[in-house]
Nucleic acid binder design. Structure first.
Lengths: 208, 208
DNA sequence: TGTACATCAGTGAACGCGCGTTCACTGATGTAC
DNA sequence: TGTACATCAGTGAACGCGCGTTCACTGATGTAC
């Protein structure tokens, strides 16, 4: 925490982002402030402007980091997959675990989850965004899992088309309900059961 | 807008909430501020405290109003149902329209949608919330639609159990993606097609 | 019908605060010769 | 190997701002007799 190096900090950019994650974790993205971060890191407020154009850019960077954490959470969940499954079963189980990991992350780290989904408009109005522009780490994991299901024959190419949206939507929606909505205060057992039900229902819907 | 009555405003409480909705509509819930509302309504800042305990209470009231707007949007969507359907078909179509209405509202009014899902913690920590405590207008519409499907024989009681969660989660998630996430800037045609796909997929999942 | 008075719904001024950002600056670092 | 100097990464002070909330108050309303 206390770095004895004076004046030149070492890696202020990284420290600020790390601190932003810390703040968001406990108080949500809105609590991230330039002065507060600088204070926590032990640097004058304006030093931050050496590394970021302004507050929004810090938040964007932190949001990116939060997406990385989310991806980590999902990967950790996937890692819990039993290794004695047939290839088709494994591909479905993988999709399940991705969904459950996403939800578990939102529940365990609501602040990070909210941050990961935060977008601050940069001045660029009118820009046309292709979907692919915004493909972000956790989403890519989902796409790959669905492709794998096709490769292994569990999912027909027709049913594969756009299947990422029902998957993402339902899991994201439940995660949001769990992180910020009415299920926030429910006991884990209830939430876990409902989460499994949500995930299994969508999978049934896409597989047909 | 301009009320000539001086001093006694008439219905300040309602005016403040209405103004809060206006602000949230264009700038999101975070932009709601006591002073700004008072200014817009033409009243001194502290007058608001005659009607609300503080900013949080105003936001809670406004969130409630936004939920009402959401319910209106859903009802408007449901009203578009053709009247020549068989009872079973109608019950399914009703569920579809609820989902599509929810999504359409989020897309048309992202500020209100965000506000409707905003919760500010009141001091009451540790409170155990039963699910039923929080049943809110739009959610009730969903529950009723599912019950009607059972009544009409489209949905078995076993499949009915907890079906509200996959439904709400997927629709809410897609709405969030559309209102605040990466699909914000996509053309309507794309969004509409994906929305329909999302809704149809969950319905397939719950009906089996 | 008229008046006294309690109650209600506002006002005006101030408190204390922390924010994002910019300015002109200085201390530290590293590179060229 | 030593020194000059450009560059980089910080500092200190200030600007201007708007916020939420509280205090002691006053103007308007309605009710009892």
């Amino acid at each position: 925490m206390t770095d004895t190096r004076s004046y030149h900090h070492g890696d202020l950019r990284v420290s600020l982002i790390r601190e932003a994650l810390d703040v968001a974790r406990s108080s949500g993205p809105d609590a991230i402030g330039v002065r507060e971060l600088a204070r926590a890191v032990g640097v004058s407020p304006n030093a931050a402007y050496r590394h970021f154009a302004g507050r929004d850019e810090i938040i964007r960077a932190a949001a990116n980091a939060a997406q990385g954490e989310l991806a980590r959470g999902i990967r950790a969940s996937v890692a819990r997959m039993p290794d004695d499954l047939s290839a088709p079963d494994a591909s479905v189980q993988r999709l399940r675990l991705i969904g459950l990991g996403y939800i578990a992350f939102a529940r365990a780290e609501p602040g990070w989850f909210t941050l990961a989904f935060t977008t601050v408009d940069d001045g660029a109005t009118e820009r046309i965004v292709t979907l692919d522009d915004e493909v972000v780490e956790p989403f890519q994991v989902l796409l790959d899992a669905l492709d794998a299901m096709v490769a292994v024959g569990v999912l027909s190419p027709e049913r594969r088309a756009h299947a990422e949206w029902p998957c993402w939507a339902s899991v994201h929606g439940f995660a949001d309900i769990v992180a910020r909505g009415p299920l926030r205060e429910q006991p884990d057992a209830v939430v876990d059961a409902l989460a499994a039900h949500v995930v299994d229902t969508v999978i049934a819907g896409i597989i047909g």
